[in-house]
Amino acid sequence: TLKMLRLQYAKAPSPPLKNAPAAHRDLEDELIALVIDRAFLDEADEIRDEMAFDAALRAGRPRLHAVSQEVHELVSNILGQYQAIRKRLSGLTQINWLASTQDMQGQLDRLVFRGFLQAVPWERLRHYPRYLRALALRLEKLPLDPGRDQRWIRELQQVQEAWRERWQVACEKGVVDERLEEIRWLIEELRISLFAQEVKTAVPVSVKRIRKRWNELGL
């Protein structure tokens, strides 16, 4: 129910992007906005007059019920996994796991924050259950071999640190740099390939490939 989803969402942090528009919205309004976007405004850029708007309404109306169910299922999955991971992470207090738990908390905070349902494109939200499943698996594996987790962190840092610096500066300025967003989702895939190979990546990914893309994008 919405009440449960609200509870799961209650501890999500503030958005990283300065002056993010949806930061203080209630979850119900975020969900309604997402349903409206999916049902009526997929081609929002092309709606420039009343005729186009009426056409969008006519096309979207029959989809409304199915879209609302699709949105509800996805968001329930995301917030359910989110809460379980957040709870487990906060229970891990071993000092020698700190590098791993801080890395995971950082990842989680960048994925789920107030307003993320509007800030993150739908195409990406659809991948969230996979990102979160990989994170949960990593959490399970951590006690078995914390040294291995830390080795993967060092591997990840070869691309993540440069990206994070640039991304944080952009967020502080309130700017979304599409190139940094593209790298960001590649880093999410890299995390899967390093920490939870059981979960399949959406695209082939490696440190080398990300560096190559970084250069191609002129970053």
Binding site: T1, L2, A33, V35, D37, A44, F53, L57, L64
Partner: peptide, 27 residues
Amino acid sequence: HRAGLRRLVLLAMPAEIRELRRRLQQP
């Protein structure tokens, strides 16, 4: 642009949006 269009949709179909909100509240 998108936020403006969303507001227009909300105004254009109040009954459907009310129904959506009602369904969200249901267990």
